[in-house]
Amino acid sequence: AQASVVANQLIPINTYLTLVMMRSEVVTPVGIPAEDIPRLVSMQVNRAVPLGTTLMPDMVKGYA
């Protein structure tokens, strides 16, 4: 199964992502692939992302 990117903490709206904020986990539904974690660093979330939430492409500015 493919691992997705999951929030490792509460990520406030407009926060620039860093490695410590994200982890990879096999979840349903599938979100942003874990292999894209390096690409996500320094990208901004466009909403608050609670701890344990799967990151979806529409949550990250400029990802989709």
Rank of each mutant, 00 (worst) to 15 (best):
Q2C: 04
Q2N: 14
A3R: 04
A3V: 06
V5C: 05
V5R: 01
V6S: 03
A7F: 01
A7G: 05
A7N: 01
N8I: 05
N8P: 02
Q9N: 11
L10H: 14
L10D: 15
I11D: 01
I11H: 01
I11K: 00
I11Y: 01
P12S: 07
P12A: 13
P12Q: 08
P12M: 08
I13N: 08
I13T: 12
I13V: 15
N14T: 03
N14C: 03
T15M: 13
Y16T: 12
Y16V: 15
Y16R: 08
L17E: 00
T18F: 04
T18R: 04
L19F: 09
V20M: 09
V20T: 13
M21Q: 13
M22F: 08
M22Y: 02
S24I: 13
S24P: 13
S24W: 10
E25M: 05
E25P: 02
E25G: 07
V26K: 03
V26C: 04
V26N: 11
V27A: 06
V27S: 05
T28D: 15
T28E: 14
P29V: 05
P29R: 03
P29N: 04
P29M: 09
P29A: 08
V30H: 09
G31R: 03
G31Y: 02
I32E: 00
A34G: 12
A34I: 06
A34F: 09
A34H: 11
E35K: 04
R39V: 05
R39H: 09
R39G: 10
R39N: 12
L40R: 00
L40A: 01
V41G: 03
V41N: 06
V41W: 04
V41S: 08
S42A: 12
S42H: 14
S42L: 11
M43H: 12
M43L: 09
M43G: 07
Q44F: 05
Q44G: 05
Q44C: 03
V45F: 01
V45G: 01
V45H: 00
R47N: 11
A48G: 09
V49S: 02
V49Q: 02
V49H: 02
P50K: 11
P50Y: 09
L51N: 09
L51H: 11
L51W: 12
L51G: 12
T53K: 07
T53R: 10
T54L: 05
T54R: 05
L55K: 00
L55T: 00
D58P: 10
D58S: 09
D58I: 12
D58Y: 07
M59F: 07
M59Y: 14
M59N: 06
V60K: 01
K61Q: 10
G62E: 14
Y63D: 04
Y63A: 04
Y63T: 06
A64G: 12
